[in-house]
């Protein structure tokens, strides 16, 4: 599979079954998904539909029970823990709902953390961390601790941490879930800016308003993709109105 012809992400008939005692839970029941380089995809659906499981598999935090997963043309569904950690570190950027900043580390150190695991030199790390913090407008809080920031600011730092490593894809799990609407929209604006800058983004959200920020909205139900919509029109610059979508039933 050559990278130029293939999508950045390809899932082929991916299934995920959780076994608890005698109960089998089919979180994903044969999911097919392609995400192209530079695309901004949102995944929505009701609670328990498998959104987060899908995102975990995309982020190599979990592996599928069945099916195949190619990332940037490489089959990654059967990698060892250590290989998965390596790919997570280099090619995936995570943005979590609850920010997941480390309380003992400063903002600078939090953003620097994934670069440390990559073994970059101190100078390289400094350049990247500074760039990332400037991108989210948080460079002036570099020496603060997460507990000294508001929720919105913490999420911007989490975004900076995700992009500092210049990953192939940004995976955002309910990035506005713990924020008020004003801060939520600010974070969505930030993601849109990153996308405009060329970032590939896959975002899980239950909020239909934010789903339309993406190029494509994917609807999951009972572990299957049941609908995909190409979003033709977006909010205006002020985020005032939703002007139209184009739907495709799968």
């Amino acid at each position: 599979m050559s990278a130029s012809k293939q999508p950045l992400i390809r899932l082929q008939d991916v299934k995920k079954v959780f076994f608890t005692d005698e109960v089998e839970t089919h979180a994903l029941a044969g999911t097919h998904l392609d995400i192209a380089n530079g695309e901004y995809v949102s995944i929505t659906g009701p609670s328990g539909c498998g959104k987060s499981t899908l995102l975990s598999i995309l982020g190599l935090l979990d592996s599928p029970t069945e099916g195949k997963y190619w990332l940037n043309g490489k089959l990654v569904s059967d990698l060892s823990l250590s290989e998965r950690a390596l790919i997570r570190n280099r090619e995936v950027g995570f943005i979590f709902q609850s920010f997941n900043l480390i309380g003992d580390l400063t903002i600078y150190e939090n953003v620097e953390l994934p670069l440390t695991y990559r073994g970059l030199s101190s100078a390289d790390r400094k350049t990247r961390v500074t760039d990332a913090l400037e991108k989210v407008n948080m460079a002036h809080r570099a020496k603060h601790l997460p507990s000294q920031l508001s929720g919105g600011q913490q999420q911007r730092v989490a975004v900076a941490r995700a992009v500092a490593g210049q990953p192939l894809i940004l995976l955002a799990d309910e990035p506005t879930g713990n924020l008020d609407s004003k801060n939520g929209e600010a974070v969505m604006d930030l993601l849109r800016e990153l996308h405009r800058g060329g970032a590939t983004i896959c975002m899980v959200t239950h909020d239909p308003r934010y789903a339309t920020f993406a190029d494509r909205a994917i609807y999951l139900f009972d572990g299957r993709v049941v609908k995909e919509e190409m979003v033709s029109f977006k909010q205006d610059e002020e985020g005032a109105s939703l002007v139209g979508t184009q739907a495709e039933v799968v």
């Binding site: 823990l81 250590s82 950690a85 390596l86 997570r88 280099r90 995570f94 480390i102 695991y117 941490r161």
Partner: peptide, 16 residues
């Protein structure tokens, strides 16, 4: 545990 989970999500290896 949570922090270690975050670190692992960010690519920390066993040795780290």
């Amino acid at each position: 545990t949570h922090e270690i989970g975050v670190r692992m999500a960010l690519g920390a290896q066993t040795g780290d």
